[in-house]
C-alpha cells in the first residue's frame, strides 16, 4: 500500500529547472523532455520535488546553488546534466532518487546541516527571547531576524516608499542563465536595476549562428513567456515548433499577437517576439538597454520582458555555445 502511494506520488515529479550560464540548449531540451513525459516544471523551489541545473555552474555560484537546494522541502533530488543527450537519463535518475526511501530518510536526517535550516532556527530562537522581554521602543534591533530593513526613498510621485533590494537570478527558473539582475523595488515596481553576468566555468564552443538558430531561440523565448503567463498548453506548442511544422508556429504566433493586443503581455515584449518569429532578427540588447527596459516596470512585467528578450541579451549570446558532446 505504502509503495503504491509512493509510486503515485512520484509518477510526475515537479522539477525546478534552472539554467546555468551557457546552459540554454540543455535547459531547452529539459523542458521538451518534461513535455514528452507529461511532467510539469515547478514554479518555485518551495513545492518542487527535484532541482535540475542545466549546464555547469561556475564555482562562485555553487554555494548559492546549495542554498537553493536547501529550499526544497523534501523528499528531494538534484542533478546537473551538462549535455543535451544526457537529459532523459537524468530525469529517470531524479525519479529513482525520489523513490529511494532509505536515501530520502538519510537526506532528511542530514537537513540539520542545511544553511537555510540554521537561519530559520536562530530566527525563531531570537523571537522566543523577545517574547519574554517586556518590549521597549528603544532597544528594537534594526535587523529583525538578521534581515536588513528596507530604506525609504521618494517614488516617482514624490511619496515616500520602502526601497527594497531584490535580486532576480542568477539561479531562477525560466530565466536566462548567468544573469543576475539586482532590482530596487518600490512596492512591486522596479525603479533601478544592476546587471551582472556570470561566465560559464570553461569556454564553450563558438556560438551557433544562422537563421535556424535565431528562430529556435525565438520559439524558446516565446515558450518561456507563455509559460510565465500560465498558459502551459500554448507553451508546449511553442516548444514543439519545428521547421517542419509551420502551421503550429502560426497558431502560437497568433496567440501571442492576441495576448499583446489585449494587454496580457507588455507591448514591448509582444513586439520583440513577433519580430523575432515572423520578420527578422531584432537587434541585440546591451546591459544598459536591459536596465532601461525594466525600469519603471511591475515585477511580473520584468520577468516577461527578460524572457522575451532572452535570446538577444548580450551575455546570453556570448555564453551560449553548444554543450553537447
Amino acid at each position: 500500500m505504502r509503495g503504491r502511494v509512493v509510486t503515485l506520488a512520484t509518477a510526475r515529479p515537479r522539477v525546478y529547472v534552472v539554467e546555468a550560464p551557457g546552459g540554454r540548449y540543455v535547459r531547452a531540451e529539459t523542458h521538451r523532455e518534461l513535455d514528452r513525459r507529461g511532467w510539469q516544471p515547478a514554479p518555485s523551489p518551495a513545492s518542487a520535488d527535484a532541482l535540475l541545473i542545466a549546464g555547469t555552474l561556475p564555482d562562485p555560484l555553487r554555494a548559492a546553488a546549495d542554498v537553493l537546494w536547501s529550499q526544497l522541502p523534501g523528499p528531494r533530488a538534484r542533478a546537473e546534466p551538462t549535455a543535451v543527450s544526457s537529459v532523459p537519463s537524468t530525469l529517470d535518475g531524479l525519479r529513482a532518487c525520489l523513490r529511494d526511501r532509505a536515501g530520502q530518510l538519510a537526506d532528511r536526517r542530514g537537513r540539520e546541516l542545511d544553511e537555510a535550516t540554521r537561519w530559520v532556527r536562530s530566527d525563531s530562537a531570537r523571537h522566543d527571547e523577545t517574547d519574554h522581554d517586556d518590549m521597549d521602543h528603544d532597544d528594537m534591533e534594526m535587523a529583525p531576524g538578521g534581515l536588513v530593513l528596507a530604506q525609504g526613498a521618494p517614488d516617482r510621485d514624490g511619496l515616500e516608499m520602502d526601497a527594497l533590494r531584490h535580486p532576480l537570478g542568477p539561479l531562477l527558473d525560466r530565466w536566462p542563465g548567468g544573469l543576475e539582475l539586482v532590482t530596487t523595488l518600490h512596492g512591486d515596481v522596479v525603479v533601478e536595476a544592476e546587471v551582472t553576468w556570470w561566465e560559464p566555468p570553461h569556454p564553450t564552443a563558438p556560438p551557433q549562428t544562422g537563421r535556424a538558430d535565431d528562430l529556435a531561440g525565438g520559439w524558446d523565448a516565446a515558450a518561456t513567456v507563455l509559460s510565465l503567463l500560465g498558459d502551459e498548453r500554448q507553451a508546449r506548442l511553442a516548444r514543439s515548433v519545428a521547421p517542419s511544422s509551420p502551421e503550429v508556429g502560426d497558431r502560437v504566433l497568433r496567440r501571442l499577437d492576441r495576448l499583446t493586443r489585449r494587454g496580457a503581455l507588455p507591448r514591448t515584449a509582444g513586439e520583440v517576439l513577433h519580430t523575432a518569429l515572423a520578420d527578422s532578427v531584432p537587434a541585440l540588447i546591451s546591459d544598459d538597454e536591459l536596465v532601461e527596459l525594466v525600469s519603471g516596470r511591475d515585477l511580473g512585467d520584468v520577468r516577461l520582458l527578460v524572457a522575451a528578450h532572452a535570446p538577444l541579451l548580450q551575455g546570453v549570446v556570448d555564453a551560449s555555445g553548444s554543450l553537447d558532446d
Binding site: 516617482r156 507588455p266 507591448r267 514591448t268 527596459l293 525600469s295 519603471g296 516596470r297
Partner: peptide, 9 residues
C-alpha cells in the same frame, strides 16, 4: 503608457 514614462511627472 506602455512602456511607462521615465522619471517623475
Amino acid at each position: 503608457t506602455d512602456p511607462p514614462l521615465r522619471g517623475e511627472t
